[in-house]
Design a protein around this nucleic acid. Structure first.
Lengths: 146, 146
DNA sequence: CCCTTTTCTTGACTGAGTCAAAAGAAGGAG
DNA sequence: CTCCTTCTTTTGACTCAGTCAAGAAAAGGG
């Protein structure tokens, strides 16, 4: 797998380093990981890895277009490797879990607000807020104990 | 105007206090204000007002449903009085300006993702990213000086 | 193998927001 | 009108995510 990652990095114009490979591995395992998760995970392969290095790696990934940063309100930023397909996210209000959703109403429907107030729009970001199935059943049990 | 605000607060089940009236005034003038703007503005009427009080006031407003908190990625939270009509926002990548947009494709179209992955969705939040007209013309001038 | 450039490490720092205790107002009861 | 209870505001310490900068280390072309 690492060979592929190295290639992936080179194609994006980035040098191949151990911190970067470790971060890619963690992101492959955790499709919506926050910095803390990435640091912890990447340290299994590279124990001396510093949080700042992870910030640097992620900034480079986002700049090179091989990762995307998402920032749900009220939570630390998350990073994902799925880029370039304009998908959106479901976020659980209770536990913060994130799931991907393909664009809701066709190709890129939300990219056309009715009145753009003079703005030139280049991206529409959609976040669906709700409860994930786990939190739903937990909540249901609490309210109606068996 | 303040009489109306007082009534508005009471109807929402909140006590009428000077900090709250001042914050309402600022929000009426600045429909998408951050905490700093609100503190500065409200101090014209109430010089001793502390930032923490403003946080408290805004938390109470949001809990009572008379204000809404929006958190564009990479910027401090903004507050608006326009609530309950499911509108969305245009955000300028360059200056952070925010404008309202009515829901893009009808009533609440985005509330129907194709596959909810077991989530029960209660809100769809849409952010349109782009450049506002001011930043556009400024950028144009910089690239093609007269 | 060396040299230049990029990346990582270390550590200090900022800014938004939270928490908690005590002082101070709001508004209902008498 | 005054008192009393409850809710707000003040003050000040604190947390957490993220940034900045300088020197050490590694990547990879010559």
């Amino acid at each position: 797998m690492e060979t592929t990652w190295a290639q992936h990095l080179r194609e994006a114009g980035l040098r191949v380093t151990r911190p970067r490979l470790s971060v890619l591995d963690v992101l492959a395992d955790h499709p919506h990981a926050d910095v803390d998760t990435i640091v912890t995970g990447a340290r299994e392969q590279h124990p001396s890895l510093s949080p700042q290095a992870v910030y640097g790696v992620l900034t480079a990934f986002v700049a090179a277009g091989i990762a995307r940063r998402i920032e749900p309100a009220g939570a630390p930023a998350l990073f994902e490797l799925r880029v370039g397909d304009n998908h959106h996210h479901l976020v659980c209000r209770s536990c913060g879990a994130v799931a991907d959703v393909d664009c809701a109403v066709g190709a890129a429907p939300c990219l056309s607000p009715s009145d753009t107030a003079g703005f030139v729009v280049d991206e529409a970001e959609v976040v669906f807020w709700g409860l994930c199935s786990t939190c739903l059943s937990r909540k249901h049990e609490e309210e109606h104990p068996a």
